[in-house]
């Protein structure tokens, strides 16, 4: 196989030759950056789904307060349920992939992964909300329904001007009686459930656990992440100094000299080091 390695601009008009060793270094760096970003992407996915739940609840509460559109109410209930299911799914994606992403960043350091494993076990032990939402995934996957009861409340209260005004509240609940039994839910957690659980309270506490796990994971990979970032930036710097800033969106290619169409491997690099979707702490 007559391989060649190079960095190429997105328009494929200019390229910079690499050695096989440089290609491997870039590939390793890209894998680490990709894993690091995946941790944050997945965490943000959970938080975004949480916001969607709040929006869906707010919207449903307003529909109930208006009482003028039955279809909107029924659609709103389905939408809320869908958003909760998406949240639970995204949370499971985050927790189930977290160790793998860290391991990809620090394959040679087993102890760092063990630190995260212990942290995850600790969150599971200390937080009922963590255990419950984690178990809720299995229930939702089986049954498709995540909440059982919605309660609206309105109260007349005096405002600062001494005038009475009506305040509106909405809450969503998961009820143990409707879950069924240990056959439908993780038995050890099912035994802990007492009666009715307020969804938002559970999710708020669960979010705190996820944030601690996210922060711990990012701390563990910080050194590797910075080095990978520097390495990729270095190659981009060389490319840009050769061809100019208009060629800053770059890709690494393992191809063959025999045919320009034949590509064994290719991956982007600029999208990681010039990623404006995250705060400065990750770049």
């Amino acid at each position: 196989m007559d391989s060649e390695f190079y960095i190429v601009s997105r328009k494929q008009d200019v390229r910079l030759a690499l050695t096989q060793e440089q290609f491997k270094e870039l590939k390793r760096a890209r894998k680490r950056l990709s894993s690091a970003y995946a941790i944050s992407h997945k965490h943000r996915l959970v938080l975004s789904n949480y916001k969607l739940i709040l929006e869906a609840m707010r919207s449903l509460g307003e529909q109930y307060a208006r009482q003028d559109d039955i279809k909107a109410i029924e659609d709103g209930k389905a939408r809320l349920n869908a958003n909760i299911n998406n949240y639970v799914l995204s949370a499971r994606i985050f927790t189930s992939q977290l160790k793998r992403h860290v391991q990809t960043c620090v394959p040679q350091d087993r102890e760092l992964v063990n630190v995260l494993s212990r942290k995850m076990e600790s969150e599971y032990k200390r937080s009922f909300a963590f255990r419950f939402i984690d178990s809720l995934y299995d229930y939702v996957a089986h049954y498709g329904l995540s909440i059982h009861t919605i309660k609206m409340k309105t109260e007349m209260k005096q405002n600062d001007a001494g005038l009475f005004e009506r305040l509106y509240y909405i809450n969503a609940f998961i009820e143990k009686d409707y879950i069924g039994g240990p056959a439908e839910f993780r038995a050890s957690v099912f035994d802990e459930v007492s009666g009715t659980l307020d969804l938002i309270k559970m999710l708020t506490t669960f979010n705190q656990s996820l944030k601690r796990l996210h922060d711990q994971a990012m701390e563990l990979i910080q050194d590797v992440f910075v080095k990978a970032n520097e390495l990729v930036n270095e190659f981009i710097g060389v490319f840009v100094s050769e061809y100019g800033n208009e060629h800053a969106n770059l890709f690494v290619v393992h191809g063959t000299r025999m045919s320009s169409d034949k590509v064994y491997d290719t991956f982007p690099i600029s999208m990681y080091v010039n990623n404006h979707n995250f705060g400065r702490e990750y770049v």
């Binding site: 509460g61 307003e62 003028d68 059982h148 919605i150 309660k151 409340k153 009475f164 809450n171």
Partner: peptide, 25 residues
Amino acid sequence: MQLHNVKTQFLLPARFNSRDTVSIN
């Protein structure tokens, strides 16, 4: 969760508070 700035034509008498429970069955 409190709802703010609720606009509704469905007005409840000011003497009353309300509760509405919607469950599966």
